[in-house]
Amino acid sequence: MIDVNILVQNAVPLALYVFAILGAIVALMQKDLLKMAVLTSVSGFAVAAIFQVLLAPDVALTQAVVGAAIIPTLVGLSVLKTREPPVTEDVEGDS
């Protein structure tokens, strides 16, 4: 008979590892950049959850805010910015 407790203790981290890696790969394989920005949060959140599993609750909190919220927002904002037509002015500069 399998101990349910040990099964859960093992299965949850392994699932999180798979999520982190697959999230990273899938995010980088997207054609649509906005989807990529959203999918970045999957990997970030999985890494935050792994921190929690590895006995680091306060680091997990920081990573959850930074990796799952701030970074996708920043990437999404810059993707939206790069969808606007570019400004074609000649930039002055010294050689």
Partner: peptide, 27 residues
């Protein structure tokens, strides 16, 4: 790691800003 996460996020923000500026100039 707490320090390292914050450093990584700020570096990422600067790089994204540079990418946006370069896009605006070169399309």
């Amino acid at each position: 790691v707490l320090t390292s996460i914050v450093i990584g996020a700020s570096t990422l923000a600067v790089m994204l800003a540079l990418a946006v500026v370069l896009y605006k100039r070169n399309g």
